[in-house]
Computed example of a mutant assay.
Amino acid sequence: MTVSDRSIKDAEEAGERLLAEHLSDDPFAAAFKATRMPMIITDPRQADNPIIFSNAAFSTLTGYAREELIGRNCRLLQGPQTDKAVVAQIRAAVEDERSLAVDVLNYRKDGTPFWNALFLSPVRSQAGDVIYFFASQLDFTRMKERQSELAAARSLAEEEVARRTKDLRDALEAKTLLVHEVDHRVKNNLLTIASILKLQARLTRDDTVRRTLHSVLGRVEALSTVQRKLFTTADVEHFDGADFARDLATDMIGAVRRDDIELTFNLSPVLIPATKASPLAFILHELVADAVRRGLGDGGGKLHLCVERLNGQFHIEMRDTAGARDAGGEEKDFSRMILETSARQVGATITREINGSETVVDVLLPVDSHGEGKTS
């Protein structure tokens, strides 16, 4: 008898002794043989810790007949892609006589791989000595493949998200460049129009024409001011209404060239969407221009401008001491028409109150909960 035959014989005898310890009607023996979970028992007291017993489920899983398993070490299930680190963990658990749960890639007799959820546990005698190792297996190849599929799908999704994010970022950058290019051209066009109006106003000998040209020029410059505000910040979709109101009023009163006009402000930042820029520019321009026509341009006085968020609305209050005299004729009527049209465009309400020499104009414009004007 060869050494190999002797080892197999010893393993068979050890398995028979194990079964002999349990009667045929012993629940342990019956359950071990009948369970659909693959199970084996090894004998660490023999050389190379051979398999001494395996159930039918283990043969079904691995493709090895019981006769091919008895007397051999479990390493016969290892293959070319079995993780050596996992094998080292199993070996260490056996040497340390401790339990271990680990996932390992094993191979069937025909060479096909399968993922094995291995549970290994020592069996001790009453004296505490390890006399057997019990191992159960669970084929979770499909679950592992599913995990790989999910991981691949997640990777593809992440790649797609990254690609779409890059596309959106590129589109946003292109849109921003386009917007700024359009802004540049609009500003150039407005400057050209303003230059033509100034030149025509200087050349004309008709006072009525001159006043009309200066009136149109003021509105063009109001548009230029709001255009500048829209595109000097990173946010091209909103602008600060208070900041714009201050600049516009300062420029208009400065153009009157009177030292006896006292201009004061009470301003709080309120974001307004770019879609409301032009109507708001016209509203502010007409209010200041009206105060100048009624007396500030001739006799000076006080002009106080308040911009704030009030009860969920964008509030503009303008107080002046220009008086209530009727001035402007056709220009006044035209200005009122622009004011009313602009107010309708943005859903604003305008009220006017006269207290002696003081005129108070209130403008209320709806804004949303984030401080940005609602789209009309």
Results as ranks from 00 to 15, higher is better:
21 E>I: 09
108 R>Y: 01
337 M>R: 15
119 F>G: 14
127 A>E: 13
258 R>H: 08
291 A>H: 00
97 E>N: 13
232 T>H: 13
115 W>Q: 15
98 R>G: 11
78 Q>Y: 01
251 D>V: 03
11 A>D: 00
232 T>L: 10
171 A>N: 14
172 L>Y: 05
84 K>C: 02
226 V>P: 03
298 D>R: 14
89 Q>R: 08
121 S>W: 01
189 N>M: 15
262 E>G: 11
164 R>H: 09
289 A>C: 13
103 D>Q: 09
98 R>N: 13
168 L>C: 06
173 E>R: 15
328 G>F: 09
260 D>A: 13
49 N>F: 01
239 F>K: 00
42 T>C: 03
133 F>R: 07
10 D>P: 01
342 S>Q: 08
208 T>S: 14
373 G>H: 00
132 Y>T: 09
260 D>V: 14
1 M>C: 14
178 L>Y: 06
361 V>T: 08
177 L>G: 12
209 V>D: 12
225 T>S: 15
109 K>Q: 14
89 Q>T: 04
197 L>N: 02
241 G>A: 10
176 T>F: 04
252 M>L: 13
322 A>Q: 03
15 G>D: 00
169 R>D: 08
157 A>G: 11
97 E>A: 11
81 Q>M: 07
341 T>A: 13
198 K>D: 06
207 D>Y: 06
359 T>V: 03
13 E>G: 07
87 V>N: 03
197 L>H: 01
6 R>P: 00
140 F>Q: 08
316 I>Y: 03
206 D>Y: 05
53 F>G: 03
103 D>V: 09
348 A>T: 01
350 I>C: 07
201 A>G: 05
294 R>Y: 02
229 K>V: 04
24 S>E: 06
324 A>H: 03
350 I>Y: 05
187 K>S: 10
342 S>F: 03
57 A>G: 11
373 G>Q: 02
341 T>W: 04
261 I>F: 02
